[in-house]
Design a protein around this nucleic acid. Structure first.
Length: 559
DNA sequence: TATAGCAGCGCC
DNA sequence: AGGGCGCTGCTATA
């Protein structure tokens, strides 16, 4: 497969290094150039997918595969199995400093002029050499390919957007809050609740949004509270608490996903959040706009497929415990993982008395719980699943000793020094706080290996699904075929013509099996999906709606 | 007046 | 003393 590297040159020109030929093309020729080459399926190599791909998508071009040098550099720099010296060279310090390009302003990508016109071909050669020299070359190649595919998916999802019914969202807001208020004022129903709270606590001037004021009012009413969290308030006995809790819930809806959110993030009937692949240190994506990481249940009814289309919503049941079983090669846990419910599998295997205990113990092991019911379950289960629990325990010990850990495919954790830089201005002096930090870092590395490998599984899943979806639609542009519109850690939403919904659901399951094979080979870990075929995202996961396989044609849109 | 930090909430 | 995120408003600080 050929590699074509693209670099921006000063002015409206692009350097394309193509099988050894170095040529300049005008930016305006780029979509045509990319399309012409796509038939030969090269890998497009560029500094940042988010910088190049949106305009190509707008021009109707779908890129089949790419290598994202920014993501690659970041990854290889921290990969324990890579010799960092091989990444050094001309302009390499600029690649070290490169951050993600901004969602709305690609100009922010640059740190300075040099960074804006980095030579992609030079960096590409270094990365190829660094990988080739690594004893983990095969796994790193898979990881880099998955990471870059993820970047393509992210750009495509932002381009496509989640179908969004403004009327549904606004009706929902009006029903709960009243008509849209003037800027800077509370909506009617929120205002009324605030008045009710003031009355109940006999605090005429109270602003319920102010923590100190609210705490003072609660204390005056004889309630012993130290914070104003809903979970703390729920335990209190007072006639005003109900109104206060309702106020808090609606105030959150108003400020987080109210009219201002619509103005900012919904356009042309689509919600377009922006994604940042590998935005978190574990390799999970983050989001720097639109709040894609917390797509609240309250507003999901507004996500409605187009007429004649449906959503296929698929999520993995207990992704991380399954990943832990796979990466540790724990045969007992792998056996419990056969079937749709891993926790129930643990009960059926006689490892634990109840599903709740199974969950407590497993999550406790992955998060580093040391006390309470969770901590006790960890101790019990360690005897039953020594390989799995040993793996996270070892990762925790490594972290406590200041060592770097890695995911299955070779992503390295940030080192303890970075963690200190992040958390404290001064290097911790006294032994106590140093020990505390080391334990905190140990909990982080413990979770890193599982969460990070889970992220790798998910990347392989969506990368393969992306290709399958493209093949499923015989013709047409990206958004006239089945296409991904949302991804969050272990869940995807595909927008598809209704007639293809069943096929999409099958492809999602096939892609999950492919991902499992790529990461865990012959260990054959099950990754069962919960799949819903729905018109509205809010209906996903509800039993009964899609429990029975739907005959093709039976799943036509309802109104 | 602008900004950083925190609390609280949402998601996995 | 359970991991990872982002967003909002309030609060303190300069």
């Amino acid at each position: 497969m050929t590699r074509v590297s693209l670099s921006r040159l000063p002015g409206e020109r692009v350097r394309a290094v193509d099988g050894g030929t170095d040529r300049e093309v005008p930016v305006s020729d780029l979509p045509a150039y990319v399309t012409a080459r796509e038939a030969e399926a090269p890998r497009w190599v560029w500094d940042d997918t988010a910088r190049w791909y949106p305009s190509l998508l707008a021009a109707g071009v779908r890129v089949q595969r790419c290598h994202d040098l920014r993501l690659g550099h970041h990854l290889l720099r921290r990969a324990p199995a890579v010799d960092g010296r091989l990444l050094a060279g001309e302009e390499s310090e600029h690649w070290d400093r490169l951050g993600p390009s901004a969602r709305s302003d690609p100009a922010l990508f640059s740190i300075d002029d040099t960074a804006e016109h980095l030579r992609a071909d030079l960096e590409d050669a270094r990365q190829l050499a660094a990988v080739a020299a690594s004893p983990e070359a095969t796994r790193l190649e898979l990881l880099l390919a998955a990471e870059s595919s993820g970047a393509l998916v992210a750009a495509e999802m932002t381009f496509a957007g989640v179908p969004w019914r403004l009327d549904v969202h606004e009706r929902l807001l009006t029903d709960l809050l009243g008509p849209r208020p003037l800027r800077g004022t509370r909506p009617q129903k929120l205002q009324a609740l605030a008045a009710e709270v003031r009355g109940a606590f006999d605090a005429p001037g109270l602003n319920p949004d102010s923590r100190p004021e609210l705490l003072a009012a609660l204390r005056r009413a004889g309630l012993e509270v130290t914070d104003t969290r809903a979970s703390s308030l729920r335990a209190l006995e007072h006639p005003g608490i109900g109104a206060l809790l309702r106020y808090k819930q609606l105030a959150h809806l108003f400020s987080t996903n109210g009219w201002a959110w619509i103005d900012e993030w919904v356009s042309g009937g689509r919600f377009r959040p922006s994604y940042q692949p590998a935005g978190s240190s574990t390799g999970r994506w983050s989001s720097n706009g639109g709040g894609a990481l917390s797509f609240p249940l309250q507003v999901r009814p507004a996500a409605v497929a187009d007429d004649g289309w449906q959503f296929v919503v698929a999520d993995v049941a207990q992704l991380e415990p399954r990943v832990l079983a796979g990466m540790s090669g724990d045969r007992a846990l792998a056996r419990s993982a056969r079937g749709a419910d891993l926790y129930q599998g643990m009960v059926d295997d006689g490892a634990v008395a109840s599903r709740t205990d199974a969950k407590l113990g497993l999550l406790g092991a992955m998060y580093g719980a040391t006390s309470g019911a969770s901590g006790r379950m960890v101790a019990d289960l360690t005897r039953r699943y020594p390989a799995a629990f040993g793996l996270v325990e070892e990762a925790a010990r490594a972290g406590e000793q200041g060592q770097v850990v890695r995911t299955l495919l070779g992503r390295g954790s940030p080192d303890l020094g970075d963690a200190w830089d992040r958390d404290a201005d001064d290097p911790p002096a006294d032994p106590d706080s140093q020990a505390r930090l080391r334990r905190a870092y140990g909990r982080f590395t413990r979770n890193f290996v599982v969460q990070g490998t889970g992220a790798e599984w998910a990347l392989c899943w969506i990368a393969d699904l992306r290709n399958r979806l493209w093949r499923l639609g015989a013709t047409g542009t990206l958004t006239s075929r089945p296409h991904l519109v949302f991804f969050l850690h272990d869940e995807v939403v595909v927008h598809t013509p209704a007639a293809l919904a069943e096929a999409v659901a099958a492809q999602a399951a096939e892609a999950a099996a492919t991902a499992a094979g790529l990461l865990f080979r012959d260990l054959s870990i099950d990754f069962p999906l919960n799949v819903s075929i729905v018109r509205s995202y809010a209906d996903a996961g509800k039993p009964g709606l899609t429990a029975e396989p739907v005959a093709p044609g039976a799943s036509r849109p309802q109104t």
